[in-house]
Amino acid sequence: MKKAESELMACESADWCHRGLISAALSAQLGHRYDREGSALSGLITWLGLAAIFLLGMAVLSVIGLSTASAGVNGVLLAAVAWGLWYCGIRMISDPAQRHPVTGSALVTIGLAAAYGAMTLLTLARSDDLGADRMFSLLIVTAALSMATAYVYHLRWPLILSLLCLFHGLGAWHEYAGDGAYAAAIQDPPTMALTGAMCAALGLWHQHAEEGMLARYAGFGRLYVIFGLLYCNCSLWFLTLDFYSEAHALGWILCFSAACVAQIVLGARFRDGKLTGFGIVFLSIDLYTRFFEHFWGRLSMGLFLLIAGLAGVVLGWCFERRAEVVTQ
């Protein structure tokens, strides 16, 4: 909320109290909630204090863990930390004055991430071999815990963690490969594409329901749409690459292109910028990938980049001209 709006609400609550419309206790609560004096400094101090406590606590746990050299002990200690962070975050969120809503959401999310780490350590304590199946199962469990927390306490940050864990638990992964390079893969791209499309469809329904019976969960549907479109489009894009599906590459290229065009059309139809944006971005990636596959080995690097740049300028000019015609 802007500072001017907060000051207006504080003044209005004081005026209501003087008129006898609300009690003095309610007026004090509203005034405290919308009083923004020194909020930036107090927020900075709060975050610094929390960071110091967290880092010191992890340092102590690290010393204990190194001295014991036991994954089980480390897992129990990390589980205790996860519970403490989650509990403190929930207490802040449940505060009627809502003095630290962002801090509370952050602590809850960090606590859930620490819970995944604790489960991993406890699994390692039972068996030295942490296979992919066990890792994916732990991610699904973490996703369920995060989603339950998000819906019970109306929090969006845990929902973000839940969706990340869910899609990674279904077979998506990435890692740093060294020398500034990153690697990403999807275990079963067709299934992931279907799952992403279903998640995006659920998000569109959720956004519509947020205007009525799901008003308490405003913003949740947007996250479903974003994550669903991201993983759906990435999966379809991977399927167009030769090393994923060389025999059926042309079919997947047509499917990917059609999906991108459909997103642009649906975005324009429903005036949803997320659909339009994802469609345009991944259609551009599709065209660039096809251009790279067919001309990278046939042209010099300078000529390749020159043609790509000129094509981008020409397309941008055409789109701007089209937008001017539509608005006139």
Rank of each mutant, 00 (worst) to 15 (best):
G316D: 11
A218F: 03
V326A: 14
R156S: 05
L138I: 15
I22P: 04
T240E: 09
H206G: 09
E293Q: 14
T149K: 00
S127V: 06
A80K: 00
L78E: 04
I226K: 01
L61Q: 05
M9L: 13
I226A: 02
L155W: 05
H154F: 08
M92V: 01
Y231H: 05
G180E: 07
M1V: 14
R269K: 07
G302Y: 09
L121V: 02
D242Q: 14
P101H: 12
C11Y: 11
R91T: 07
G309Q: 13
N74Y: 09
V326T: 15
Y34E: 11
I264T: 00
D272R: 01
L138D: 07
S67H: 09
G277C: 01
G72D: 11
G203W: 00
D95K: 12
L305H: 05
I285Q: 08
I45F: 13
L122C: 07
G316F: 04
V326L: 08
L61V: 10
Q187N: 12
G65D: 10
S6V: 07
A80V: 11
M1Y: 03
P101Q: 15
F278R: 02
L145S: 01
S137P: 12
L166N: 02
V313H: 04
A258M: 02
F278V: 03
L239D: 08
A71V: 10
W317I: 12
R156F: 02
F292P: 10
L124G: 09
Y217C: 08
A144I: 09
Y288R: 12
C318R: 10
I186P: 01
